[in-house]
Computed example of a mutant assay.
Amino acid sequence: MSDATFQRGPARLIDRFGGGVLQVLLILVAIFWLVPTLGLLVVSLRAEADNNSSGWWTLFAKPAQLTLENYGNLLASGFSSSFWNTVLITVPATLLVIGIAAMAAYAFAWIEFPGRDALFLVVIALLVVPVQIALIPIAKLYGAVGIFGSIAGVVLFHVAFGLPFAIFLLRNFFAGIPRELLEASRMDGAPEWRIFATVVFPLAKPAIASLGIFQFLWVWNDLLVALVYADTENQPMTKALQSQMRQFGTNIDILAPGAFLSLIIPLVLFFAFQRYFVQGLLAGSGK
Score class of each variant (00 low, 15 high):
Leu135Lys: 00
Leu135Met: 11
Ile136Leu: 12
Lys140Tyr: 14
Leu141Tyr: 13
Tyr142Phe: 15
Tyr142Leu: 13
Gly143Asn: 15
Gly143Met: 14
Gly143Ser: 15
Ala144Asn: 15
Ile147Val: 15
Ile147Trp: 10
Gly149Glu: 03
Gly149Phe: 05
Ser150Cys: 08
Ile151Gln: 08
Ile151Pro: 00
Gly153Lys: 00
Gly153Trp: 00
His158Pro: 07
His158Val: 06
Gly162Leu: 01
Pro164Ile: 04
Pro164Gly: 07
Ala166Asp: 05
Leu169Arg: 04
Leu170Val: 09
Phe173Met: 09
Ala175Tyr: 07
Leu182Cys: 07
Glu183Trp: 04
Ala184Tyr: 07
Ala184Pro: 03
Ala184Ile: 04
Arg186Phe: 12
Met187Glu: 05
Gly189Asp: 08
Pro191Glu: 01
Pro191Arg: 02
Glu192Met: 01
Glu192Gly: 01
Arg194Ala: 09
Arg194Glu: 11
Ile195Trp: 00
Ala197Tyr: 10
Ala197Thr: 13
Thr198Ala: 14
Val199Asn: 12
Phe201Asp: 02
Phe201Tyr: 12
Pro202Thr: 04
Pro202Cys: 08
Ala204Asn: 11
Pro206Asn: 08
Ala207Leu: 09
Ala207Gln: 09
Ile208Pro: 02
Ser210Gln: 13
Ser210Leu: 04
Ser210Gly: 15
Leu211Trp: 04
Leu211Ser: 06
Leu211Val: 10
Ile213Arg: 02
Gln215Thr: 15
Gln215Gly: 07
Phe216Lys: 03
Trp218Pro: 00
Val219Thr: 15
Trp220Ile: 05
Asn221His: 02
Asn221Trp: 01
Leu223Lys: 03
Leu223Arg: 03
Leu224His: 03
Val225Glu: 05
Val225Arg: 00
Leu227Glu: 05
Leu227Arg: 05
Val228Asp: 02
Ala230Gly: 06
Glu233Met: 13
Pro236Lys: 06
Pro236Asp: 10
Pro236Val: 12
Thr238Ser: 15
Leu241His: 06
Gln242Ile: 00
Gln244Ile: 00
Met245Tyr: 11
Met245Glu: 12
Arg246Ile: 05
Phe248Val: 08
Gly249Glu: 11
Gly249Phe: 00
Thr250Ala: 14
Thr250Ile: 09
Thr250Trp: 11
Thr250Leu: 13
Asn251Ser: 12
Asn251Trp: 00
Asn251Phe: 01
Ile254Tyr: 13
Ile254Thr: 08
Ala256Ile: 12
Ala256Thr: 14
Pro257Phe: 10
Gly258Tyr: 07
Gly258His: 10
Ala259Met: 14
Ala259Asn: 14
Ala259Pro: 07
Ser262Cys: 11
Ser262Trp: 04
Ser262Ile: 12
Leu263Gln: 12
Ile264Ala: 12
Ile265Asp: 08
Ile265Tyr: 11
Pro266Glu: 08
Pro266Arg: 00
